[in-house]
């Protein structure tokens, strides 16, 4: 329990330091924003007023403090420099789509990856080994953007079965979901397989077999419990980075998620939006990391004795 609490605090601290780091990196050169926000005919006084309202004359640390204060107290991430809309609204509407997409592709990848991994670890033909290892390596190497283009070409352009871009209804999630899920599932399959192979060959399984346990019991008690933790944490981490926005895939499909929001904001030099999206992703990622560690402790009691 104490360990979990400490882990929670360190996660919280990490979010703060990471957000400061992001703030520092993105800290724009003051002149730019003033120039960008007002017309060229603006007087010195007007420029000064805008700079003052944005707090640009303060030191970085002070500005960071003000920013965090408004985020924590009011949930206010500032306003977009381009559309003048509140960053919190933009992020909220984008996050919905990204969360659904991430859940969908993680679900697909887990299902496919674990099935393939377990199957290939159990089958012992001469050709299974090279086919599975080379095949999964192949899928890991597939660039998602190439795959996405192929899917668009085949399903949307040539056959008109599915729409190309947008995010209006559930059909729009299918192609991005699949393009993200396939390379992901190959990674899951590889890890599951190598893990299972190692465990199946370990002495405690041989002992369990030789003392006559049923194979159901062996799987349930000895194999799954040992094989699960690394696979779960790998899936969780990838899920976390999907939630941070999948920049390339979302951009290709014109998917209105967090990734595309971030990329577009970068092109527009709209740093409040970038900062908000980054902060949001960091919070989500750390939360997932925290729950993964807790889950790890629950799944594998040995972990709690070791240093976390």
């Amino acid at each position: 329990m104490k360990r979990i609490f400490v882990r929670f605090l360190s996660g919280l601290a990490t979010v703060f330091v990471a957000s400061f780091l992001a703030f520092l990196i993105l800290d724009y050169a003051p002149g730019d924003v003033g120039d960008r926000l007002i017309s060229e005919t603006a007087t010195e006084a007007q420029i000064a007023e805008v700079r003052d309202s944005l707090g640009l004359d303060l030191a970085v640390s002070e500005r960071y403090f003000l920013y965090i204060k408004s985020v924590l107290l009011n949930g206010d991430f500032g306003r977009s420099l381009v559309s003048q809309r509140s960053v919190a609204t933009l992020i909220y509407s984008a996050l919905k789509y990204t969360v659904i997409l991430a859940c969908l592709s993680t679900f697909l990848a887990t299902l496919l990856g674990i099935t393939l991994g377990v199957w290939s670890a159990n089958s012992s033909g001469k050709w299974v080994e090279p086919i599975v290892s080379t095949g999964s390596m192949f899928w890991i190497s597939v660039p998602v953007y190439g795959l996405a283009l192929f899917l668009v070409q085949f399903f949307a352009v040539q056959n008109h079965w599915l729409p190309v871009v947008g995010g209006g209804s559930w059909i729009h999630f299918i192609l991005p979901g699949i393009s993200l899920a396939l390379p992901f599932s190959a990674a899951v399959a590889r890890l599951t397989r190598s893990n299972l192979k190692m465990i199946l060959a370990s002495p405690h399984i041989i002992t369990a077999k030789s003392k006559g346990l049923t194979s159901h019991l062996i799987w349930h008690r000895h194999i799954v419990r040992n094989a699960l933790p690394p696979v779960v944490s790998m899936i969780g981490l990838r899920f976390g980075s999907l939630l941070g926005g999948t920049f390339v895939v979302e951009t290709i499909f014109g998917f209105p998620g967090l990734g595309r929001l971030t990329v577009e904001a970068i092109f527009d030099q709209d740093f409040p939006v970038v900062l908000g999206a980054v902060l949001c992703a960091a919070i989500v990622f750390q939360t997932i990391n925290f729950f993964l560690d807790v889950l790890h402790i629950l799944l594998d009691p040995r972990v709690e004795q070791k240093a976390l």
């Binding site: 992001a22 941070g244 990622f285």
Partner: peptide
């Protein structure tokens, strides 16, 4: 602490 490519993305930004 930042997932995936996010750190790279803000550096590029």
């Amino acid at each position: 602490s930042l997932p995936g490519l996010l750190l790279a993305i803000i550096l590029i930004a």
